[in-house]
């Protein structure tokens, strides 16, 4: 499936909730969508197009804004599909994808603790890789690496 086919297939279902589809490497395309319509887009992509497997969720800190992206896989097409949307840099939050793809659970926990993107209505938004009580979000651009002697504030979490 090419990105034009993807746009053509999704246009009647989602309308203006899609901001655009662009070709991206060997995937089916990179689908930009509006953040407030996230669950509609996920359902349409999974049930209408057959992208049943969510491969990963990640986030990028672009300083001016945050980007959250989803990589879905279709067995029928044998292709990946990228879905991404932009969130404001202050208090970024988006609806959780767990009702559609249960495998989003741990990926969203990781994205939350590393890039500080809150997923609304997530069933269990706890720390996954970092210790409980860790107050930093290490993959943000504003996070500075510490010398071990400056670690007192980090030790407090243990």
């Amino acid at each position: 499936m090419q990105s034009e086919d993807l746009a053509k297939a999704l246009a009647p279902v989602l309308g203006d909730r899609i901001l655009g589809v662009e070709p991206f490497a060997k995937t089916a395309g990179r689908l930009r969508f509006r953040a407030d319509a996230a669950l509609d887009v996920f359902r349409a992509v999974k049930e209408d197009l057959g992208f049943h497997h969510l491969s990963m969720v990640g986030g990028i800190d672009w300083v001016s804004h945050r980007e959250v992206f989803y990589v879905a896989w279709s067995d029928r097409l044998g292709q990946y599909l990228l879905l991404s949307t932009d969130l404001p840099a202050d208090a970024p939050h988006i609806e959780s994808a767990t009702p559609v793809w249960p495998s989003a659970n741990w990926h969203e926990r990781e994205t939350w603790e590393l890039v500080d993107i809150t997923f609304d209505h997530h069933p269990d938004l706890r720390h996954l890789l970092l210790p409980d009580g860790y107050v930093f979000h290490p993959l943000l651009r504003s996070f500075k690496l510490h010398e071990p002697e400056e670690l007192e504030v980090k030790k407090r979490s243990v």
């Binding site: 890789l129 970092l130 290490p138 996070f143 690496l145 510490h146 010398e147 071990p148 980090k154």
Partner: peptide, 17 residues
């Protein structure tokens, strides 16, 4: 002493801490 990950955000810099 933490090895090559000494300044990493998630690594204890030496187990004697």
């Amino acid at each position: 002493g933490g090895g090559p990950f000494r300044t990493a955000y998630s690594v204890v810099p030496g187990v004697d801490k």
